[in-house]
Amino acid sequence: MKIILHVWRQKDRNAEGKLVRYECPNVSEHMSFLEMLDVLNEDLTAKGDDPVAFEHDCREGICGCCGFVINGVAHGPMPGTTVCQLHMRHFKDGDELYLEPWRAMAFPVLKDLMVDRSAFDRIIAAGGYVSVSTGAPPDGNALPVPKSDAERAMDAAQCIGCGACVAACPNASASLFTSAKVSHLGLLPQGQPERHERALGMVRQMAIEGFGACGNIGECEAVCPKRISIENIARMHRDFLCAAFAERPHVETGGAG
């Protein structure tokens, strides 16, 4: 089949971008979306043109590298699917597709369909962990975890950090991403001691990075390739509110002598 693409081309962070039209003849239905772009890039290279830059790595939907907007939908039309796992059998001959990078102030475009998502790392660094250094922790079975809690924690922990939630949100909020980590750790006993500090630190960092606030619209959940629920956002808000009321100034109480 033949697919017509309009791809966002932008040389670097500061350049002006524009949509450029390409024709992809001979697209096989068994190809993945990225394999179609590989073929396009081989053609562009043969002509001496600059290939389209897009991020990708595992091509199994787990590393979170890939992702762009296809006809206005982050990761394209298939629910629960990253673009690397999206196959061309879901499109038809003659389809015209518009490919754009994630759009958010906190995700500056680096080139073409690539954006800078380092803000996500800084949100994790602001508290998305359990402060346990490598050493000799208690036996793995010392602290039983109810199966249902472990399952719900895992549901949230599946987040791949791709950024689709931000791209889909009218406020460019990173609430789904942030709340997935707050929930994952907040649902487990290991995460309790720092539960409040974690919610405060991560939510504040999200604002510092320039992400918007949640407006309960739900676009994030609709495009999330791991189908992470917005229930997590409610949990994050509750933790944040409790933490904000309970927050006390940190006082150093002297040394050990």
Binding site: V132, G135, P137, G140, P144, P146, A150, M154, A157
Partner: peptide, 17 residues
């Protein structure tokens, strides 16, 4: 043990083990 302490959500039995 280390990974459990970090909050890695390993699969559990109904008794929590």
């Amino acid at each position: 043990d280390q990974c459990v302490a970090q909050g890695v959500p390993f699969a559990r039995e109904y008794g929590g083990m």
